[in-house]
């Protein structure tokens, strides 16, 4: 297997390890950004929120570094089979992780726009939702690091609970807005936060699907995944 069986050309293994290391670091930072953004939202900590926005630049820089290394490795090492699939997945995964980082930044930017004197009951729900999303992102990246297709499949199945949370928060916020027209602006921001979290869950699913492809060479079967998240969420919004 890829992790135990080294290439004849050792420098190739060094390139691969460096690539994996960069992706792990990038994933860790995206996860951290989400955690900090949600904590800032929960506690109204503007400094922490500002730090999340600043740190996003590092995630972008890591994406550029991975892209460059992957292109260079493809050009110089002509990877084949699972090595080739890993290169392609690495390129796609970092663009997804970069999006996750952006959503975290977007949540952080909304902290300053919230009226901190009024607590809104949706926030604890959002915190619970974000805990699941952090786990999904973490497990999706772990499944990449460990070449674990089964863990990847479990991530896609668990994304269903994020969608359920989204639908529930959506209803809660709509009800809250009807009862408290003064807080429509805050509630609208929190709706976006919920939507961002829902999208992050989808992105974790995307990563898991790519991991499945890297490990098995096959696209994940439709039946292995949970319900298509976008359809579920979209239907609820219409209703």
């Amino acid at each position: 297997m890829a992790l135990t069986n080294d290439h004849t050309v050792k420098a190739f293994d060094e390139d691969l390890n460096r690539l994996r290391g960069l992706i792990s670091e990038m994933g860790g930072r995206a996860e951290q950004a989400l955690l900090q953004a949600m904590n800032a939202l929960n506690s109204g900590d503007l400094d922490l929120a500002a730090q999340v926005v600043r740190d996003d630049k590092k995630i972008d820089a890591l994406e550029a570094e991975v892209e460059q290394l992957a292109v260079q490795t493809i050009a110089l090492r002509a990877p084949m089979a699972d090595d080739l699939r890993e290169m392609i997945a690495a390129l796609k995964i970092v663009s997804v992780v970069e999006r996750i980082g952006d959503y975290g930044k977007n949540i952080a930017k909304r902290v300053a726009l919230m009226d901190q004197t009024r607590s809104i009951e949706a926030i604890p729900l959002l915190m619970s939702m974000s805990n699941i999303v952090v786990e999904l992102i973490h497990d999706a990246l772990d499944s990449f690091a460990a070449r674990d297709a089964e863990l990847a499949v479990r991530v896609t199945v668990r994304d269903k609970s994020v969608d359920d949370f989204y639908n529930s928060i959506f209803r809660t916020l709509v009800t809250f807005m009807m009862e408290n027209p003064k807080y429509i602006s805050e509630s609208a921001h929190l709706l976006f936060v919920a939507k961002n979290l829902e999208r992050m869950g989808d992105h974790a699913t995307n990563i898991a699907e790519m991991v499945h492809y890297v490990v098995t060479g096959e696209r994940m079967e439709e039946r292995e995944r949970g319900d298509r998240p976008e359809d579920g969420a979209a239907e609820q919004e219409k209703a």
Binding site: N5, H7, T8, V9, F12, P79, M80, A81, D82, D83, L84, R85, G217, E218
Partner: peptide, 14 residues
């Protein structure tokens, strides 16, 4: 892109 046999994979990936 997706050899079925481990020996094939080991050979073509170096």
């Amino acid at each position: 892109t997706n050899p079925r046999q481990e020996r094939t994979k080991d050979y073509i990936t170096g």
